[in-house]
Design a protein around this nucleic acid. Sequence first.
DNA 1: CTAAGTGCAAAATGTTTGCATACTT
DNA 2: AAGTATGCAAACATTTTGCACTTAG
Lengths: 132, 132
Amino acid sequence: MGRKEYDTRQREALLQFFRKRPESCFSAGDILKEESLSLGQATVYRLLSRFAEEGELIRFVSPDGRGSLYQYKKDACRSHFHLKCGHCGRLIHMDCAFMKEMEAHIMAEHRFCVDNAKTTIYGICADCGGCK
Amino acid sequence: MGRKEYDTRQREALLQFFRKRPESCFSAGDILKEESLSLGQATVYRLLSRFAEEGELIRFVSPDGRGSLYQYKKDACRSHFHLKCGHCGRLIHMDCAFMKEMEAHIMAEHRFCVDNAKTTIYGICADCGGCK
DNA sequence: CTAAGTGCAAAATGTTTGCATACTT
DNA sequence: AAGTATGCAAACATTTTGCACTTAG
């Protein structure tokens, strides 16, 4: 009843690629363009879905609603919100104590369990003009 | 320099459609199937995007990551977060005092100005299993 | 009359699938 | 040898675009 996964060149290369870039997320298209990997289209989609299922990668839905983005999943990122600047694209990890309070409040008062992996908070960062 | 929008049959019909169903969300495909509306494909996509931009509708990314869903948005909704259950689809309006605290914290500590109109918090509501 | 909106069909995206071949174990 | 994985191309689904035509102001 072990896993029935074969250890292929493609699989290892892709995983390696993400592990080396834990701060960024990539779409299937990004991966396909990466010549150093040179993976077939079907393979890329199949591997990405599988990794996301297995928990190696987090899948974000991209802001415009078209397509998915994948990022290597450090355990840490599961526990906080991400603030995405709609102007410069910067991703801020809201990794602070208050985060816990927010989750607690939402759970207690609104009876809702937040999924950090699927949630992105959009707005504008201070460098880009922020609140006027 | 005001807005230059024309008041067309299609525009009003679509808006009306959403206003009458404030509790549900629809994809572009759903709207196209709605024979009572009979709108052209391009028109549907153009109107939906525009309404979402103008703030008449909220746009959600559908759970499977393919395509968008739209729902009527009351004016009041501009000042709070929305919690969307990925299982039953219910939309919870996080309309409470704590909401202000959250915004204040994010502004002060993370120098980031949240855009409520563009943000949706995904998760699972208590009725659907919530946190186990 | 002019600017904006509409609908069609074609094109562009992004993702999935069928199938023969190649690789792992 | 048996079971998986890969790659290609075709199939799909959703959304966008070019363009001629219509409509609102």
